[in-house]
Structures are given as C-alpha cells and as structure tokens.
Design a protein around this nucleic acid. Structure first.
Lengths: 336, 336
DNA sequence: CTGTTAGCGCTTTCAC
DNA sequence: GTGAAAGCGCTAACAG
C-alpha cells in the first residue's frame, strides 16, 4: 500500500450538521463564529446536532478564508540548555491562553535557521517566534513580504521589522562584575558563551566594561555555553602560573555549575577563595548555591505574548523590549 | 482597530505563478507535487517564476484536499522534568525528517488531557502523540472516530486502538532491586513516583517483586516524581528509629539526586553505607555519579516515528512496544 | 504531458 | 435572522 493512498478520514462537516439540524450551512458556521448573529432557537438546534455528530469546525479550512491559522511557528535550537524548557512551557501556556498554538521547528545541527523559515511560512502561521541561532535580514525580509510578524526571543536586533524581547544581558554582565568586585575580588575570570551569539557577547561586554571601570584585571576563556566547554574553561582559568582568579563570571549557569565543581576538584573553596556568578537561574542553580542573574521568564513571555497580539492587530514592530535581570545572591557569593 | 480586522496578508498564490510562467495553475501544482509528471521545460519555467515571486505552496490549502496536514499534535504536561526536553528534541527531529511537524498543546495545571483533545483534532493533525497524564478511553474514542492515530509515549494502555511505545518500567524496577541486593544491600528503600501514574506503579511493582523474591524487606515513601518530594521521602527513609536502609531506589533521577544530597547531609556515605539507583539517566545523573536505569530515548523515538508512519499508511494499531532499559553503573553503586 | 473542471470545508457577502 | 452563492488556495480526476 503506497503512502497517502488511504482514504481521508470520514470527517463530519458543517453540512452534515446543517442537514441534521434542518438549517443552512451558514447557520452552522454562524453558530461557531463568536460575533455572528443567530437566533437562540437556531443556535440550540445546531449545537445539539453538532454534539450528536461530534462536529467541530475545521480550523484549517477556516484559516483559508480568514487568513488566520492561530498557529505560531517556533524556531528553536537549544532545547538541551535547561534554561529553555521552562521558557517553552510558559510560552506555550501564554499563547494557548490566547487561543494560539505553537508549531515547532527545531534547527538541525547541520543546518541554518535561514533555510527553515520558508518551511515555517508554508504552514501559514500567524507569526514566527525565533529563539535560535542568529537571524539574518534575508529571513526577516521573507517574513515581512508575507506580512508575518517575526518576534525574536532573547536575540538582539538584526532587522527593524522584527520585534525583540530580551533581558538586559549587558547590564547582567555589569552587575556580575560589580558584585564580585564589591565582594572583594581582585582578579576576575570570565567564561564566555558561544562567541558570535549576541547574548554571549553582551554579557561579556558588560562584565568587561564594569571591570575596566574599576580597573580590575580580567582573564578570559571560551566555554561555548556548554557544560563540557565550561569545565574546560574553568580549569584553564583556575590553574596556570599566574595568580589565580578569585572571582568568576560564567555567561550561563550550565558553565558556572561546572566551574563550581572544577573549583572543588582543585581544592579551591567557594566562596572563600573564589566567588562565582552564573546567568539564567536554572533549577540546579538554587540547588547548588550558585549565585546568578535571573531572567524574568514570566515577564519575557508576557511581553512577547502581548507584542504578538498587538502585531496581529496591525500594530507595527515595537522598539526592542529589554527587561531587567536580577542578581540572586547565594552561597557562591558568600550569601546566607 | 478590532482584532482580526486586518486585511489578510497579500500572499502569492499558485495562480500568480501560473500567469507569470504562462502555464495553467495545475502545472504549478504539479511542479510542487513530488510524484507528478511535468516536462522539464515547464518545471523550469514554473520554478523560475515561483522563485521570482517567492512562492511556496500553502500547506493548509493542500491539506484540505489531501486530508494530510503533516502536523502531529503533541500533548505534553511535564516539560519541567529534565527527562523530557531531550525526548522532545529527538522527537521533533525525527518527525521533521519525515516532513512532519509538532503542534504543541500543554496541559494546564487545572485541566485535563481529555478536554484538550477536541481542540487538537480541530487542527486536523495527522496523528496525536500523548505524553501526559492518564489517557481515558473517551479520548481515544474521539480520535478513533476521526480515524486519527493516537500514540502514547511512555504511558501504558488504556485503549486497544492506540499505539504504545514505552520502556520496560517494571523490569527496570526489578533490575534495580536485583542490583542493590547483589551489591549486598539488606534493607531496601523505595521512593515512589506520583502514585496513580503507570510508570510510577510499574517501577515500584518490579522493584517490590524482586525484593520479595529475595526476601529482602522494603520501606517505602512517596516522592511524587518531584525534586522536593524526593528529598522529603529520602529524609523520611534515611532517618527514624528503625535500622536505616542501605539500598535506595527512586522512581526517577530527579528524586534520586535529591536522595544523594540528603544522604550526604545526613552523613551517610555513598556507596559505602548506602547505595542509590535512579531512573531515566538525565544529564545530571552522569555528573553526580548516580547509577540509573537508562531509557533508550533514541529507540523510543525511532519506534514511535516508525509506528506513526505505518499507521498513516493504513496499518492498524500495533501491540505495545516495550523497549528494554539498561542499568548504568556509576559511583552510587560502587562502580569505578 | 497539458489545461479544464470540480470541489476540499469553511466564512462571507448579498438578497430576502 | 436566514439561506443561496461565491470563493479562500490548492489537488485530482478527466479529456485532450
């Protein structure tokens, strides 16, 4: 049996309901259209018939006419980072509350975000949320041509037609440096995220700027945002001939937690010899007393959902929305 | 401006392409239909015109005719369990390789899986994958009426029309007990998952059966599959007047890891005084030397994808597919 | 191989 | 308020 040869399911259509209820097909349609005018009598008859047959409007057929699918494309790449699952859960919940649903596209390791976008658009999603890779202008243009809003979550601008919702990465870096310096650190270490990504660069920039302002030296290493890379970078920064660093900032918690473990292995006691700050506040951070910059996940998602709603109602792209991050002081900083 | 009042996007249709290429609309359609017969000449003209206009077929319109949307509904509840993100990532990848995409539905905390299903079906998804809550037969019936395959991932049977892909939870429990006993444990402890869920019950059953077979006593506590609950249960099992347990099995790693920490807090040294085994093999398990029963994620996903493909080609529901779990020996069991 | 035609299930004018 | 009819963008017969 060849694929696709199956008879399509015998679905219940509005016409079936109309016949059973002895009304026109349009009456059925109106009954299921929120703002339409139907007499109470008709509505009841239709609803009864629909319930009897198990009828529910076909959203795809509807969207062909209304131009609205109530689906939002979500392009994701880094589900393995524990920061994302809570985000995804909240995002899905917020959109579901608006009557929309996420259509998921994951970026294959060997592929680019770019190449995925046309596929996303084919599904007639009402908007595209991108939370992966770097977004080039070609892509934004493709969406703009189709008048499909594009929202970038935790990515920084590449195109003025897209909305941007993100946390203040640069200020987070700044806060980290300030906190370490205030805690008495004199030789700082910075574990970079994947270079080239805006979040990594901004966090680093803020950190370096604040350290420079205070004239505190900084040694750097690249951890690539991964646990393994973070461990490697930490080892690199905590050993060697030079005077060891006494304050460490990692561009995400995954790496910071590894640094914590590496420090332990090397016999450095935290927070006495070494203070550590991460970024994201993933669940494990609390468990291991890791100080970190917490992103306001709930606010990010709410802002995104609100902006999405606005754009779908015709509003133009808004200026980037940058939400504050908040330093959570835990044991790794000498907090209670 | 009222919602939905916006003019639908000015989309490029197959007719636009046809006109530009001086061919019929069907020629355009055929060009984009894999198995159709078009001359090389026409195909080129069409593709050129399409590229020029930025045309791509509207999948929703297509699905109205073919009865195939290439979307698969995914009903999820427990994204916060670190076991799920890798699963979701692999699943999405596997389906994407088949040219399908996941439409996400998360179960709100105050709601039932049941109530979500009609909404899922409205989107004309080709199939529904459920990875949440307990699935009642009413729901399965609804899907069956629409001839929509239902696949349950890591849930046990409730309806013969659904496919089931899961790992051998009961045997995992058995293996855990056997391993602890073989390692010399004489007083076992069991931290239950959320009671009522099949995975929790089966893991417990296997564990208890094997312990009983070996006539080793077992104390039990409920951890509800959560980190907090696991810590509480561990504290309960590791303290108290009775002789302390020397072998502990937790129904998932989240709880087992907490148990590991609680044991440390209580001054019990692992694996000397106490051996611990978890379930799932989440990333943290390796990091903390937790022995655990690893689920064959990749195999689960592949089996699911294959079964999905089969069902969509007309195959009937298959008998439950139970994949073996594998005990990973780490420090918590005294392994190297 | 090609164009013409019908129609997927639905919403939306438009008369009544 | 209601039904008839048109048509969203596309595929699938069907003649040629």
């Amino acid at each position: 049996m060849t694929p696709g040869t199956q008879p399509p399911a015998a679905r219940v259509t509005s016409l079936d309901v109309a016949r059973l209820a002895n009304v026109s097909q349009s009456a059925v349609s109106r009954t299921f259209t929120p703002g339409a005018s139907v007499s109470e009598k008709t509505r009841e008859r239709v609803l009864a018939a629909a319930a009897h047959l198990g009828y529910r409007p076909n959203i795809l057929a509807r969207s062909l006419i209304t131009g609205r699918s109530n689906m939002v494309g979500l392009v994701l790449s880094e589900l393995s980072n524990p920061y994302y699952p809570p985000l995804l859960e909240k995002l899905s919940g917020a959109l579901q509350a608006q009557g929309r649903h996420l259509l998921l596209f994951t970026v294959p390791h060997d592929q680019d975000v770019e190449t995925l976008i046309p596929r996303v658009l084919q599904y007639q999603v009402d908007a595209v949320v991108i939370c992966a890779g770097t977004v080039s202008s070609g892509m934004a243009a493709a969406c703009a041509r189709d008048r499909r809003p594009v929202l970038l979550l935790n990515r920084t601008a590449s195109h003025p037609q897209a909305d941007h919702v993100l946390c203040d990465n640069e200020d987070g870096g700044r806060q980290a440096a300030a906190a370490l310096i205030a805690a008495g650190c004199q030789r700082l270490g910075l574990i970079h995220g994947q270079s080239g990504t805006m979040t990594a660069d901004l966090r680093a920039r803020g950190f370096l700027a604040e350290a420079a302002r205070a004239a505190v030296p900084v040694r750097q290493a690249d951890g690539g945002f991964t646990a393994a890379g973070g461990a490697e970078a930490a080892r690199c920064l905590l050993t060697g001939p030079e005077a060891p660093v006494d304050g460490l900032f990692a561009a995400n918690d995954l790496m910071a937690l590894e640094a914590l473990r590496v420090a332990e292995t090397l016999g450095r006691s935290v927070p006495q010899d070494l203070k550590i700050i991460g970024f994201d506040d993933i669940p494990d951070a609390a468990r291991f007393g890791l100080s970190t910059l917490r992103q306001p996940l709930e606010d990010l998602v709410q802002a995104l959902a609100a902006q999405l709603e606005a754009r779908l109602n015709g509003a133009p792209a808004a200026p980037p929305q940058v939400l504050p991050v908040c330093l959570i002081r835990r044991a790794s900083l000498g907090a209670a």
